[in-house]
Simulated assay, not measured.
Amino acid sequence: MDLLLWRHAEAVDGTPDLTRELTERGHKQAKKIAQWLSENRPKHLRTLVSPSLRTRQTVAAFSDKFEIVPALAPDMGVPDILAATGWPEGRGAALLVGHQPSLGRLAAMLLSGSETDWTIKKGALWWFSNRVRDGETQTVLRAVISPDLL
């Protein structure tokens, strides 16, 4: 299974949190990553998005076919996210568009085995795969893409 974590692009400050919109810069960030994803995406990609406006605006640069998943909301944790994705036993690939700190904690868990406060930059994409070698399940970091580098 492939698991792609895409942090929402830059958004305006304010409340209520779930209705914050992307800034002009945020729209540009989303378009850059969306273009990269369009060229490099895995087959059979399922797109799961937080209920927040800024995540829906981020993913709209890539696709209009996505599922809004409450487990990706800003206040949810790593176990909630993993349960929604089926990682690592699931098939195909899942693109998750979500928030800090939960995406950073998920990345830390996948690579180090423990939830730690890692930061994923706004608009950045982290791509993980899993494989079995010698009977052991391994997590592989395939790519880390920042919109500033595209």
Rank of each mutant, 00 (worst) to 15 (best):
L150A: 11
A30K: 04
D17G: 03
G92Y: 05
D148Q: 09
F66S: 14
M76D: 01
R133K: 05
A108N: 06
L37I: 03
S129C: 06
A124H: 01
L53G: 06
L45D: 06
T23V: 07
E136P: 00
P16H: 04
D134G: 00
R46V: 08
G104K: 09
S50W: 04
T137C: 03
N40W: 04
W127F: 03
E89V: 14
G90R: 14
S114M: 08
D17M: 03
S129P: 01
E115F: 01
W118D: 02
G92H: 12
F128N: 02
E10R: 11
V132A: 02
G98D: 11
S114I: 08
P79D: 13
R131V: 06
P88C: 14
T116K: 07
V12I: 11
G26Y: 00
W118N: 01
D75A: 13
V69L: 09
L3E: 05
Q100E: 15
I68N: 10
L4N: 10
L106F: 02
E21D: 07
L95Y: 02
P101Q: 11
V12W: 05
P79A: 11
P16L: 07
L149N: 12
G135W: 00
W118E: 02
F66W: 15
S38I: 03
R105I: 05
K28G: 08
S102K: 05
R41D: 07
E21N: 04
V59R: 14
L72F: 06
S112M: 06
S146N: 12
D75Q: 14
P147K: 11
T55W: 10
L5S: 05
L103D: 07
D134F: 00
G77C: 13
R91Q: 14
L96M: 13
V69H: 07
L150Y: 02
R133E: 10
D134I: 01
T116Y: 01
W126E: 00
E24M: 04
G104Y: 02
G98W: 00
A34P: 00
G98P: 13
Q57D: 09
Q138G: 00
W6R: 10
A73L: 12
T19Y: 02
Q138W: 02
G90F: 12
A143C: 01
V144D: 01
Q29N: 05
L3V: 11
D80A: 15
E115T: 10
S38H: 05
A30T: 02
I33F: 00
V12T: 11
M109L: 15
T58R: 10
I145L: 04
A11I: 03
R20D: 01
D2Y: 13
K122G: 08
H27K: 07
E10Q: 14
T19G: 01
G123C: 05
A107R: 14
A124R: 01
T19A: 07
W36G: 08
L82D: 09
V97Q: 09
T85P: 09
E10P: 08
A108Y: 03
D17Q: 04
S52V: 08
L82R: 13
T116G: 02
D17L: 04
L125V: 06
E89Q: 15
R142L: 09
K65L: 15
